[in-house]
Design a protein around this nucleic acid. Structure first.
Lengths: 351, 351
DNA sequence: GCGCATCTTGAGAGCGTTCTCAAGACTTGT
DNA sequence: ACAAGTCTTGAGAACGCTCTCAAGATGCGC
């Protein structure tokens, strides 16, 4: 099958099948009102000529763009980014999105926006105008960025807010953070732990609050105190180390720590080692996210598996499925689970 | 600035600036032959109205599509992919590509293609027809996939072959694999190691061969043997474990191992631990790639830093810069470096 | 077997941009 | 000062597709 120089257009197909251009369009888009016989003939021609509709032309003529846009921070260099790989959401989000888009004939594009500045409106606006995506996916902390959500709402572009359950426009998706934190804490209590510390994430992330809440609720249910057992980090390694240090110094009786992400948990692991504490014998450790790195630490970390890719996948499906208007208010919740590895054990005083 | 419902088109700008549509187009595209005065007036209107050209329309009218396409394997589920995150190229490639595209007003799209089957032509062809990308990026092992490269060449789409230096169409980019392997091996020799094993990658990757070659050359230069010191894996953890096992069983006198990627190196680390060998006291370990996971193992691995993101970035820049024809034959080579961490030490018999 | 509703098909316009080409304005050389 | 360029500008077609709307074909009820 020699490749022809010229692109095969809908016109070529129409001619080959002996029908009008419009009929071919109907067949391609699974439109109604085409006789099966004609449909088959057109399909045969499409197959024969190897016709594929041009995305650009489709978009031009007012139909869907078949593009889902994911917003990401731009203020990062290549080095910054490399640093975060494997410990961040970006990659999981990308892969979940790309895979799911691909399955539905859509494409995922990533737009890097300076989300901190007041350039948001200009930059994001430009991207929306240029790309005209059928849907947008927001991850924390952008999910609750007013500038962004309002711009999207004003343009009437359907969007998903991952890690947000606040009211407002857009489809909210959460990953059961409160429940997961509760689950993890309860598990530690079952293991006999009584003094369980928390390394929380930054407060501008709603999920930080939910995680704290789940931890606190589990402690309360068991009649345990939580005063002085919490430190806040920024999801980065150094901040995790500082938090763990503070926690362990202030509470020498601590036997377990829950960290709000893997990166900070690894930092806590290192701090424990430096202090001569053995994990899990002296200190149990549970992290959030379950990104790939935690499988290879020593010991491998027990982690709450945040189904990020899965959630993005759900978000994409939702955006694709829904009409441009339907703005269902239901929060979509994807369940998180606990993956027990070697960083948790029976509390030392119980062993 | 109230957001208007309707999209701002080039026509609106023309009207506002009191010039023809064509003149605006010239200004937007930095075309020649526009009086500075007119140019400024048009620019002002563009600014005022917030005009952004529609990508789709631009593509339609025969100009560039501003899309760079990256080809990836499709035969993977979400779970498969999660598994590989942080240890694979995908994410680094994506980020390098996305960032660089973004800097030049381009977009990177990822196409998932079933590269194993004979559907390649159909699937990839469809993607190319639909997207009409200005350039394509191929990573190993696709960089040397004949079906793919020939299809791209036939369609006259510029493309970059990362990790390939074979002649043929497309721009080849390499990361100095031979030199890097030589460097790492030499370093081990400097540390007094005499029996240095190699866990090689699969042979369909050219870079596997280069890495072996660098290792062999360094050994030869030092007058050391390499017989029986090599085992081949498939870049996966289990295969790395098998290879390390075989290597250590056959050569009890081994004091160092170089693994062709991080995943296999981590497997070797685990195997060593199981056998009661301490890294680096009894066995030194160097891995290839330096993906984020190796910083968090115990001990952190000394690794050859493969500048994947950087290389993709270079590839993108090259694709963007070049005219549609210019097919320079020069191989672009991005240098790799050695990052020394705690998995290498002076050979035990020398200590 | 006739009239009306419904199904099927096609013609033509329009989407927002760039390309080609021609016309007018301005230089330059002599 | 005049012919022969060179610059600047604009008009109109083209890109490949879907939309709207109208016309012809077909089915149904009586």
């Amino acid at each position: 099958m020699a490749r022809v120089r010229k692109t095969v257009t809908i016109r070529d197909v129409a001619e080959d099948a002996g029908v009008s251009l419009q009929t071919v369009s109907r067949v391609v888009n699974d439109g109604p009102n085409v006789r099966p016989q004609v449909r088959d003939k057109v399909r045969a021609s499409i197959e024969k000529l190897g016709y594929v509709p041009s995305l650009a032309a489709q978009r031009m003529s007012g139909s869907r763009s078949y593009i889902i846009l994911a917003i990401n921070d731009r203020e990062r260099t290549l080095a910054d980014w490399r640093e975060r790989l494997g410990t961040d959401w970006v990659d999981q989000m990308l892969l979940g999105g790309i895979l799911t888009c691909s399955q539905h004939g859509y494409r995922m594009m990533v737009e890097l926006v300076d989300t901190h500045s007041d350039h948001v409106e200009r930059e994001l606006g430009a991207a929306l105008s240029a790309l005209q995506p059928d849907g947008v996916i927001l991850t924390p902390p952008h999910s609750e960025n007013r500038l962004i959500t309002e711009l999207l709402a004003a343009r009437r572009i359907p969007f998903a807010r991952i890690g947000s359950n606040a009211p407002g426009p857009g489809v909210p998706l959460t990953m059961g953070d409160e429940g997961a934190a509760h689950l993890a804490t309860t598990r530690l209590i079952e293991l006999g732990h009584r003094r369980i510390g928390m390394i929380a994430g930054p407060s501008q992330y709603s999920l930080s609050g939910w995680r704290i809440e789940g931890w606190r609720r589990a402690l309360a249910e068991a009649g345990l105190a939580h005063d002085g057992l919490i430190e806040t980090g920024d999801f980065g390694y150094p901040s995790g180390a500082r938090a763990a240090e503070a926690l362990l110094t202030r509470n020498p009786d601590l036997t377990a720590i829950i960290a709000s992400n893997d990166q900070m948990a690894l930092a806590a692991l290192e701090v424990a080692r430096e202090r001569g504490l053995t994990v899990p014998d002296d200190l149990s450790l549970i992290s959030f996210d379950n990104t790939p790195i935690v499988r290879f630490s020593q010991p491998p970390l027990t982690a709450i598996d945040q189904p990020i890719a899965e959630t993005v996948s759900r978000a994409v499906e939702h955006l694709i499925a829904r009409g441009p208007e339907a703005d269902d208010r239901a929060v979509i919740e994807v369940a998180a689970g606990l993956v027990e590895r070697a960083s948790t054990a029976i509390a030392p005083d119980r062993a």
